[in-house]
C-alpha cells in the first residue's frame, strides 16, 4: 500500500484515501471540433503505459479532494516526487533508468 504525500495537505496519507486517474498531462484538445477521429481517440484512450518512470494523476478523494501529480516508478513503486497541477515534473524518465 502506497504512502502518498499530498502536496495540498502537506502530509503523508495512506493510499486508501486517494484515487488514481491515469497518465498525467493529457490536455484536452483546445478545439475538439477540429480534431479527427484518430486525434480524438488518441486523446481519450491511447496511453504511454511505461515500465519505469510514470507521471500520473491522483486525487485526495477522502481528504482535501484536490488533484495533483505523482512521479512514480511503475516497477519499484517508488514515488519520486509529487507536484501540483500546472507544475512540471523534475524527475523524468531519462534521468532514472527503468529496471
Amino acid at each position: 500500500m502506497f504512502h502518498i504525500y499530498c502536496p495540498h495537505c502537506s502530509e503523508y496519507r495512506e493510499e486508501e484515501e486517494f484515487h488514481y486517474h491515469g497518465q498525467a498531462h493529457i490536455a484536452r484538445p483546445l478545439d475538439p471540433d477540429s480534431c479527427t477521429d484518430e486525434e480524438w481517440g488518441n486523446y481519450m484512450f491511447f496511453r504511454k503505459n511505461p515500465k519505469g518512470i510514470h507521471h500520473e494523476l491522483w486525487d485526495h478523494a477522502a481528504g482535501c479532494r484536490k488533484f495533483f501529480n505523482v512521479t512514480r516508478n511503475t516497477v519499484t513503486y517508488e514515488i519520486k516526487e509529487v507536484y501540483k497541477i500546472g507544475e512540471q515534473p523534475k524527475v523524468v524518465a531519462d534521468a532514472v533508468p527503468s529496471k
Binding site: H19, H21, A27, R28, L57, D59, A61, R65, K66, F67, I85, G86
Partner: peptide, 13 residues
Amino acid sequence: LNWLELYHQTEWP
C-alpha cells in the same frame, strides 16, 4: 462530483 472536480482542477482551473 469527482468528475466535476477533475475537469475544474485539471482542465479549467
